[in-house]
Design a protein around this nucleic acid. Structure first.
Lengths: 268, 268
DNA sequence: CGGTTGTTTGACGCAGTTCAAGCGGAGTGG
DNA sequence: CCACTCCGCTTGAACTGCGTCAAACAACCG
């Protein structure tokens, strides 16, 4: 549960009360094995999950049998807040690696949100950031070549992983098959294979044994046309590796509003 | 402002107090002309808008000059809640038609959210639904042919337009160029032209004078592989035209939570 | 050591792009 | 009322990024 709190505290400060309440709400921990679905399209889940460890994917299955992965929830992410506010899953969530998930019932989460509006605002904010990531994926699939698209995915995951301190030696654990990648970027597995080979041949990355290593961050960013602004990562984060500098477009991230009393000057 | 309240009331009941507060918060109305940007990438807006009338598009511009439209805010939508919780726009919002927009300052909106947590929950819920639409767009761009993709866009807009009562005679106002459409579906303008011709030749639609008419809803749905579940439209809505039946997969939409006291049975 | 799962390679085909030219309607000015 | 212009739509032809099919190869595992 520490990682969830750590991630929330990157953007805001939590009181002891709030931390306790989070611990209490996400009390139960469950394990999921690779390939296992946590939640399926059409279901009406009664709980919300927070990923502690491992790797998940959200995906939608099409009638013809294809699959499109629409996001990768990483450790520290509270996923399917979605199901808290809506009724029915319009997509599935599966485990790509062995994953530990802290679980909160809708009822408990509702109580939490009512008692701690500032926490509710933080969760709301997370939902908005997730939306920003979705938008970038639309751009990715709609307007970038297979090569740039794949590079972009790897860049994004690096920044998000770094944000929760899960990068090491310029790389991160990424235990996926090339088919998984192809479902995420909307290409055929064969083409993904060729793109990866090119990225390797150019000395940008290596991907082996479920681990992605980035050898030339600037090169990869250039190949991807990647700008991290949409991720809203913390401003001056302490990245455990050599790439910290690229993260700072030096934007100040807004504190979560509500009960902070801060307000901007009007406009309309 | 009526349309905003009407849309919110499709999913929930608003007290007189809440309606008054909404009116007061979104007091100022501004006009925008076609082609004009309401908000630009990189900006730090101090207000949130609600579209009363007209048509907007959210888009991201790429360095190479391409553009990807990531959504079409329709009348009744409160857009850029985004900017309320985050700092800086990672995308732009432009007007496609002459548009009337009700404007609320961040400060006023914050006060509203604090005073009426149920309204905050409704807005949060809207953000989550928007996320669901983004996901479907990822699927659309990633895994559907140009033909299906274009048909899908038209289906989605029909359902969303019908939701706020803006369809008439099986069609709706859609004052866009083929270039706009191509930027939304991630195709070249030339190919969009050919796809539209095919859709017309098959008797599915016509698109002329800024108005889209659907002649064969079932055919269009089939061409698109469209299922409306992700839109979370009201269950038994009174559509003003002949296509109401398709909208109901008969799912019960969750009431907005918070202060309703309802809770589901646990699971984890 | 055989089975299974994931990666790699090659050949071929097609959906969609690009380039380039022509067309039509709406607005404008003479 | 016509001529000119602009903008968006349409068409054709050549090209290409990526998909499909199919087979070989590599790694892991019981």
């Amino acid at each position: 549960m520490e990682i969830i709190i750590r991630k929330l505290e990157l953007r805001s400060t939590l009181s002891a009360d709030e931390k306790d309440a989070l611990h209490a709400t996400f009390g139960v921990v469950r394990m999921f094995e690779p390939g296992q679905d946590l939640l399926s399209q059409g279901e009406r889940p009664a709980f919300v999950g927070a990923l502690l460890d491992g790797l998940l994917c959200r995906y939608k299955a099409l009638p013809a049998g294809e699959r499109q992965i629409v996001s990768f929830p990483l450790p520290g992410d509270i996923f399917d807040l979605h199901s808290f506010l809506l009724d029915r899953m319009d997509h599935s969530v599966g485990a790509l690696a062995r994953s530990r998930v802290a679980v909160a019932s809708h009822a408990a989460l509702q109580a939490l949100a009512e008692a701690y509006p500032r926490l509710a605002a933080l969760l709301w904010r997370d939902a908005v950031i997730e939306g920003a990531i979705f938008r970038e994926w639309i751009v990715n699939c709609g307007r970038r070549t297979g090569y740039a698209r794949t590079a972009h995915l790897l860049c994004e995951l690096f920044v998000r992983m770094a944000d929760v301190g899960l990068t090491r030696e310029g790389g991160y654990g990424f235990p996926v098959t090339q088919v998984d990648i192809s479902d995420a970027v909307g290409l055929s597995p064969v083409h993904v294979n060729r793109v990866l080979q090119q990225l390797r041949a150019e000395g940008l990355i290596s991907l082996r044994g479920g681990r992605l290593t980035i050898h030339d961050w600037d090169g990869l960013v250039k190949a991807a046309g990647f700008t991290p602004d949409y991720l809203n990562v913390a401003e001056n984060q302490s990245a455990p590796d050599g790439f910290a500098f690229v993260l700072g477009t030096k934007q100040t991230n807004a504190q979560a509003r509500f009960a902070t009393g801060d307000a901007r000057d009007g406009h309309g």
